[in-house]
Design a protein around this nucleic acid. Sequence first.
DNA 1: TTAAATTGAAGGTCAAAGAAAGTCAAAGAT
DNA 2: ATCTTTGACTTTCTTTGACCTTCAATTTAA
Lengths: 155, 155
Amino acid sequence: MSILSDSIEDFIKELMSEEEGTAELQRNELAQRFNCAPSQINYVLTTRFSPNRGYTTQSRRGGGGYIRVIRLNLDRRDYIAQIIDQSLNESINMRQGAEVIEGLAQTGAIGGGIKKVMLAAISDKALSAVPEYRNKLRSSVLKEMLTSILIREDD
Amino acid sequence: MSILSDSIEDFIKELMSEEEGTAELQRNELAQRFNCAPSQINYVLTTRFSPNRGYTTQSRRGGGGYIRVIRLNLDRRDYIAQIIDQSLNESINMRQGAEVIEGLAQTGAIGGGIKKVMLAAISDKALSAVPEYRNKLRSSVLKEMLTSILIREDD
DNA sequence: TTAAATTGAAGGTCAAAGAAAGTCAAAGAT
DNA sequence: ATCTTTGACTTTCTTTGACCTTCAATTTAA
């Protein structure tokens, strides 16, 4: 019974509790351990370890490749987490994006330098290559940027 | 596992910290030390010590030949302007983008916070909405972010 | 006694093989 | 219906080896 995905999820969380909020794994090795297709691991990662659920992932391909699963720092800055969860699932226009960023700056969640960079990243100019998807992209880019600052600094 | 390339990179940086921002090495000797093909050294140099990452190399062949790795020490604003001008007119892939950002961080042109945000902004994940234009978008977003830094106010 | 030829010792290039991880759509379960 | 699972195919990164170029030292020939 015990759904495969759930077992893998538990296993990764187990790993993560031993280390400090991160787990580093090798996709093929893990797939072998659970006797499943490697892409199953990706499925678990996207369904169980998404930013909305308080996680993000980093990875590297090729020899010595790995997948790192990182638990986001939600305790102190859950304002940001809330935005990721609530405001950035749909597409957003420039005004809405700027409002979000301004709000973060006002509350001191981000500094002036990062504010400038973020505004630039979601500007129409930056996304001009694909006018049709602009707003979708904008929320996507902003979401990733916010997620990145929820990753603990030490790394 | 400990990826060979990473070890060699670390070793060269170690050398460089002892001397003042330069390291002089012999390709064959280094290859022997790491038990690898000499061309592996070239691979590390081109992927880890490129101009985009804030380094250059000089070398001489023949008897008594050597390779010298030099960390660039450029004025921050000039450096950024140069990258905008030279590296961001074409579309760039993630690797190239990360190189540029890494170079900026290495030379102290940007801090760790901005580095993280920038890497997130140009990641495949952030731009996943439109795979076809990814690389074009990536250079566009990065260009706007760097430009924003050059706008004088504070920071 | 040189000036040219040879040799050996570097480093450079490139393409192919190998080693991961990512994507996506179709098939299976619940 | 929706969530899981799989497998074929793709992309990215690393490592190696065969072959090329450059340079300095040494030998050779005038």
